[in-house]
């Protein structure tokens, strides 16, 4: 079942990249996707039935809109810090606990944190993420955990766990 999912996803990717619906093209894509699925299929997607639940897709759209808005805010934040003559930075590495379990969800959370204003993920050890923050606004762990992970953690928990 996992192999079939990887095959279908790589086939969709191939068709979107080439966008030519002739028989030789589709045959070449099918062969390449089959090789990809045979080699890499066992690494991905431990529960493929998640793809078939519409509720998860809805939460994914909500997450995507939030994420794009956070990206745009992050850019203006960086522009302000870079163009300000005195450069208002107060950098440091903070420790944040996460409640997500699966690898895929943790990767998504780390990527989201990297693109949100002023933060970049340095490492994940066990349950704790180490995050470099360009301007530390608070010293209290509970407050800065909420500031860093924001609403991403609950959204990701709803569609990827």
């Amino acid at each position: 079942m996992r192999y079939v999912t990887v095959f279908i996803l790589s086939m969709i990717f191939w068709l979107l990249i080439t966008f030519k619906f002739t028989v030789p093209n589709i045959a070449a894509g099918a062969i390449a996707s089959a090789i990809t699925a045979a080699i890499f299929g066992r690494y991905y997607f431990h529960n493929v039935y998640k793809f078939l639940q519409p509720r998860r897709w809805l939460w994914f759209v909500v997450y995507l809109v939030t994420f794009i808005w956070a990206c745009i805010k992050a850019n203006f934040d960086v522009a302000y810090r870079v163009l300000h003559p005195a450069m208002p930075i107060k950098p440091g590495i903070v420790k944040v606990k996460t409640t997500l379990r699966s690898e895929f969800a943790r990767t998504l959370l780390a990527n989201s944190i990297t693109m949100t204003p002023g933060t970049i993920t340095v490492d994940i050890i066990g349950d704790e993420m180490y995050i470099h923050w360009i301007y530390i606004r608070s010293e209290d762990p509970a407050v800065y955990t909420r500031m860093v992970t924001g609403r991403f953690e609950e959204y990701i928990k709803k569609f990827a766990e």
Binding site: C71, A74, N75, V78, V82, M87, P91, T114, H132, I134
Partner: peptide, 29 residues
Amino acid sequence: LFNIFGCIGLIRLPDMYNRLQAATKCVTL
């Protein structure tokens, strides 16, 4: 314009982690 901000950050900011932050965010978007 965003790329320009990112590269100014790459040149101006003081240490490696801050440069990485500014450059990655701005240049990617």
